[in-house]
Every structure is written in structure tokens, then in C-alpha cells.
């Protein structure tokens, strides 16, 4: 398969006004991906499917990612004149990135036996009305997975033929895979609570100082 840069430049040439970014992945998986702009995502996806050199005819997986508001600290070495001398000084800039929801698709080609190519789309915010174009008309296999993203993350896919909840019931209003989701507080007795469960246990039962908090243990004289 071609490199992502080649695919990006060819897609941008075929689909006018489209804007594609390459998202690097510094992790050990090292799978960089293409970030499509929402307006031209369908046209670019159609190009990826039908281009004779790519033929990405199989969408194996579609999933969501929830990104909270975050601040990214960047440290840049800047040359500054300090006491009449030129020195290299570290300058830290903080960039606030507002939260968004993301849909990630893994594409393969069955005919040409290559892949995966990973494409992403991002919503503008994390509100309930967050929207993305549906890729179900292009890859039918995305239908249930986009329903799952809608159910668990709350992304509305425009152009989806049957956008309903798939796992939770229709009356459910929350989106459980969002990072700020709080599940109903129906804690029940747990014999060996730890971590988050221990915090819940402390809210429901009186604390046992000799077991739950080591700082309360005092040595016998």
C-alpha cells in the first residue's frame, strides 16, 4: 500500500477542498492515521473504497474515542538574551484543547490483500448534539458499529439508515463509555474492596480503621 502522505495528496487532489491531516501515533503500535474533515469525509471514503490502487473494500472495525478537555504542555528551547549574554532557556507553553469525540475506522482491502488503513473523524465538541457523517452508505459493515458508537459515546451519525441504541435500552439517556459517565450507585457488599470499589465501600459502610486505613494502626507500647 502507498504511504499515508501519498494517499493524502491523491485524495486531496481527487476531492476538491477536502482537508486531510495525518495523525502520528508515537506508541509502540506505530499506526498513524488519516483525520478526515467532516464535510468531505464521505467523498474521501468513497475514493478510498473505489480507487483501483487502494480498493479498501472492507471496514473491519469502527469505534469511538472520548477526549476530555485537556491542556498540553510544550517545552521549547528559546534563545534569549539574559544579562547581556545569549542563552538557551526552556520556555513552557500551555495549550488548552477542548474535548471532542472521535470515530475511528479500520479499513482493509480483501481484493488487494492490504491494510489496515485507519481513518478518523472528530466532532466539534462533546455536547449531546455532536454529529459526524455516517460511513454506512459506503461500508455496510459499519452500520451496527456506528449504532454502538451512538449508544455508548453519543455521536449522531448523519445519513445512517437506522440510528438507534443497540446495547442499552431506548429509554436510557446516558452514554456509558464517556469518561465522565457515573453509573448508578447500587453498591453491594464486596469482601475485598480495593481502589475505586474501596472508595465506594467507604461511602456505604463505616470505615474499619484497622483494615481500611493503615495510618490508623498504632504500635502497642
Amino acid at each position: 500500500m502507498e504511504s499515508l502522505e501519498q494517499i493524502k495528496s491523491r485524495a486531496e487532489a481527487v476531492v476538491p477542498w477536502s482537508k486531510i491531516d495525518i495523525i502520528a501515533n508515537p506508541g509502540p503500535a506505530h499506526q498513524p492515521s488519516l483525520l478526515l474533515d467532516n464535510e468531505h469525509a464521505s467523498a474521501v471514503a468513497l475514493f478510498l473504497r473505489d480507487d483501483p490502487a487502494l480498493r479498501l473494500d472492507f471496514c473491519s472495525n469502527a469505534t469511538g474515542v472520548d477526549w476530555l478537555d485537556r491542556t498540553v504542555k510544550k517545552t521549547v528551547k528559546v534563545k534569549k538574551i539574559v544579562d547581556g549574554e545569549e542563552k538557551e532557556v526552556d520556555e513552557t507553553t500551555e495549550e488548552k484543547i477542548p474535548g471532542y469525540l472521535e470515530a475511528v475506522y479500520h479499513l482493509y482491502s480483501i481484493t488487494l490483500k492490504h491494510g489496515p488503513l485507519i481513518i478518523r473523524m472528530r466532532t466539534t465538541d462533546r455536547s449531546d448534539g455532536a454529529r459526524l457523517p455516517s460511513l454506512t452508505p459506503i461500508w455496510r459493515s459499519a452500520e451496527f458499529q456506528e449504532r454502538e458508537i451512538f449508544d455508548l459515546y453519543g455521536v449522531r451519525f448523519e445519513g445512517h439508515p437506522d440510528l438507534r441504541r443497540i446495547l442499552m435500552w431506548d429509554e436510557f439517556v446516558d452514554h456509558p463509555m464517556r469518561k465522565d459517565y457515573r453509573d448508578p450507585d447500587d453498591y453491594e457488599y464486596e469482601p475485598t474492596p480495593h481502589d475505586d470499589v474501596l472508595e465506594r465501600a467507604k461511602q456505604h459502610y463505616t470505615v474499619r480503621p484497622q483494615l481500611d486505613g493503615a495510618e490508623n494502626i498504632t504500635a502497642q507500647p
Binding site: 435500552w169 431506548d170 429509554e171 436510557f172 439517556v173 446516558d174 448508578p184 447500587d186
Partner: peptide, 11 residues
Amino acid sequence: SFGEHDLEPPA
């Protein structure tokens, strides 16, 4: 019944 956050009643 199916509630907005959990089953009604939870037990």
C-alpha cells in the same frame, strides 16, 4: 421498567 439511568426499581 427501563429507567433513564437504571432499572426502576433497582431491586
